[in-house]
């Protein structure tokens, strides 16, 4: 790869990326620490939106729009449906965290320390100049339908199986044979 410029003179793209990354990490922290279930889902929207912005900065436009469509549009709505259907308390509830919170914080801090140390040590000199067009819908589409057709079709069968499985699991008038 090319020679990496200094870290002390960040480009505009890097500044934007770092701001979006800070938003994503902060909103993710609120997702796992907030005391209200619905707020957790809404902070998840902020996280996914900031990540879509990160993808845009990284020139992966198509992935960014798919992220907005599927994560923000579908998955968060599905999670909100789940919250409503399990009659979760809407307001502030005190027992969203289980008893092993200190152990979880310890494990998470250890994971973060190890991962960040290794990643910073391993990719300190890695630098990729950003060029537009690498992740446009045309490029990704031709890549999917030229080189990745078999996994794509297998994935559609997997989605069908998941759909049927969800229907069978959530209907109450389908019984086993036993």
């Amino acid at each position: 790869m090319t020679d990496a410029p200094s870290y002390l003179s960040p480009t505009g793209q890097e500044i934007v990326f770092l701001l979006l990354g800070a938003v994503a990490v902060g909103a993710a922290l609120l997702v796992v620490t907030t005391r209200q279930l619905v707020h957790a889902a809404l902070w998840l929207v902020v996280t996914f939106g900031a990540l879509a912005g990160c993808y845009l900065v990284l020139t992966a436009e198509f992935v960014a729009w798919v992220q907005v469509l599927i994560y923000v549009g579908a998955i968060v709505v599905l999670l909100l449906f789940g919250i409503m259907l399990t009659r979760a308390p809407i307001g502030r509830s005190a027992d969203l965290d289980s008893g092993n919170r200190p152990a979880a914080a310890l494990v998470a801090l250890a994971t973060a320390a190890v991962l960040v140390t290794v990643v910073v040590d391993g990719f300190r000199t890695a630098y990729a100049p950003l060029r537009a067009g690498g992740g446009s819908a045309g490029e990704i589409g031709s890549s999917v339908f030229r080189n990745w057709v078999l996994p794509f079709e297998a994935l559609s069968v997997l989605l069908l199986a998941a759909l049927i499985g969800a229907i069978v699991l959530s209907r109450t008038d389908i019984r086993g044979r036993g």
Binding site: F17, V25, T47, V119
Partner: peptide, 14 residues
């Protein structure tokens, strides 16, 4: 774009 930035953000998110 330094690759460290997305890698660190992703490690923190994980």
């Amino acid at each position: 774009m330094h690759i460290v930035y997305p890698a660190v953000v992703s490690a923190l998110l994980f």
